[in-house]
Write a protein that binds this DNA or RNA. Sequence first.
DNA 1: TCATTCTGCTGACACGATTCAGCATGTGGT
DNA 2: ACCACATGCTGAATCGTGTCAGCAGAATGA
Lengths: 336, 336
Amino acid sequence: MTRRRSATLQDVASSAGVSRTTASYILNGRADEMRIAPSTVERVRAVVAKLDYRPNRTARSLRTRRTATVGLISDQIAGQQYGSSMLTGASVAARELQHVVVMGESGGDPELERLLIEEMRERDVDGVVYATRTAQTIRLPEGLRAMRAVLLNCEDPDVRLPSVVPDDESGGRAAAATLLAAGIEDVWVMGEDPVPHATAGPRRMAGIRAELGTRGLDIAGVVPCDWSVTEGFAATSRWLAGGGRAGGLICMNDRLAMGAYQALAEAGLRIPEDISVVSFDGSALASWLRPVLTSVELPFHDLGALAVRRLLDLEDADGTVLLPMAVRVGGSVRGG
Amino acid sequence: MTRRRSATLQDVASSAGVSRTTASYILNGRADEMRIAPSTVERVRAVVAKLDYRPNRTARSLRTRRTATVGLISDQIAGQQYGSSMLTGASVAARELQHVVVMGESGGDPELERLLIEEMRERDVDGVVYATRTAQTIRLPEGLRAMRAVLLNCEDPDVRLPSVVPDDESGGRAAAATLLAAGIEDVWVMGEDPVPHATAGPRRMAGIRAELGTRGLDIAGVVPCDWSVTEGFAATSRWLAGGGRAGGLICMNDRLAMGAYQALAEAGLRIPEDISVVSFDGSALASWLRPVLTSVELPFHDLGALAVRRLLDLEDADGTVLLPMAVRVGGSVRGG
DNA sequence: TCATTCTGCTGACACGATTCAGCATGTGGT
DNA sequence: ACCACATGCTGAATCGTGTCAGCAGAATGA
């Protein structure tokens, strides 16, 4: 534990026989601009290498007011099942841009959220990515107005800010197209949801309708239910008990689809022979089901990465970027 | 964006008619020690409130060499399905101790790991939690020797360091006890694994054996396989095809158990009427299965939280702390 | 020859806090 | 009247860096 204090810029300068200023210019790539002689540059670089000099980031931050740190504030990122790769994506992108991510989870508590934002500001983060677990419209928290911010998986219609969200409408089209391509024309949708500000559901519905519309078709029916395994099971069971049948079932997420799988199995219906299932999320869960669930993937990793890149790219204009959702093909669609 | 610069200690001092020194003492709780008059203390505090003064953490760090920041380095925390709550736990505990977590995922790449450690040191983190996705013995990375570190979900037998891991042996006992309590005495284990340094498997096995031993019993048989859904399905199918039968099945994790569920269902065996299943992880997946899977819970949240607390508690001695694993009771055990 | 420009570098201040050493002033004892 | 001590505060150094303004000497132009 008793490592001697590491080399400072002064050490480098003295050892190379120049002033701190000169050494600083060289290390900040301003040697040409400042007309430092090549021989001097070389000498200083050699000393830097020999002393294994690392600039003290704290001191630098104090001067420059930049901390090479970005905040990631969300209701639930880490604790969540699948969305945590947003965090990985953000972290990787930050690293590429020589930054580091500090995380804050509010758990949905507005007061805690306020404190987290306050803390980020106190720590002088270079910007904040404000993320939500589920895609939705939000009102930007007060504290963020004064900071550079990017919205992740959410949008504020009233504020001009960069925002990164999945392209759920295209995702919806892709889901429907997958069934159409298999010759399935009677499509039911499981899980239209009444959650107030959620955007994923409505957009996916719109996409599905639009795609079916290109063939002059419409959704055969909708079963409302929460996006959970147990609700999916219950809703599907009720639907089947009521005589429900369809060539294809589009589930609003993978968990719900898992519930549907259970209900269908219990009713003796085989996937995909008797009914085809398509879902959204593209989570690991989809790949665990038998048959593997065909699911339209949420690009969590890319969402997180792009949010950070937009945050740190000062040239970037405001506005929403929609990230495409790819179909992960499994075996739950007939003839697929 | 054009917020005026926020108040500094100097502003507070001037405005209160005292020196920076005095203001600093007051704000750092050294007023008594320094014999500052109560009236002065009150005056300064009032000004602090009025100006909404927040100490500049960067400047403070430069002086004190403490950043109120802890690093969390792991092979895969965020990207992982269930372990990400370790991160949440760590983050929450850090907050309670006025610290913040910066995350680094190496993806298992030793070179990247080295860079991450280097970066943490450069950023002067107050300590590093070194975590692994799966419980295992490791060799402490070189770079961490010079820093304060705590191991999370892993242990280095050769190095004296605080370490926090789940108590897998007791977990194993609990799993076996659950079956014994239901009167089940012929117990098979799915998923003994040959992964080199992994500790979870062997310890759980030892616990199971010990618990069965208290009744003069032993494991009826073991089916080796990877801890994945597909392997669980395949291994269980083979076992059943070979005439395998048992009163109780202990699966080494929930994913494997899901595969077993699928194979048992395919063979027409009902859970728990025909066979009882117990597993490890206590993940959300367990609660999604039908019937809900009884599973011995990995306390990820607490693991993460305790690791950070031990990291920041300088009084803490070295040594491994085992965190208990609770049984989350579902409906997969007969009579449960 | 002298003014001007270019070359190569440095001194000194600033960023915003912590903290050691010390300086007036009052108070009590002899 | 003088010393000792407690009280209540402050000056100045320090952490390690970034950067403006400027300085000496050489080269150039008229």
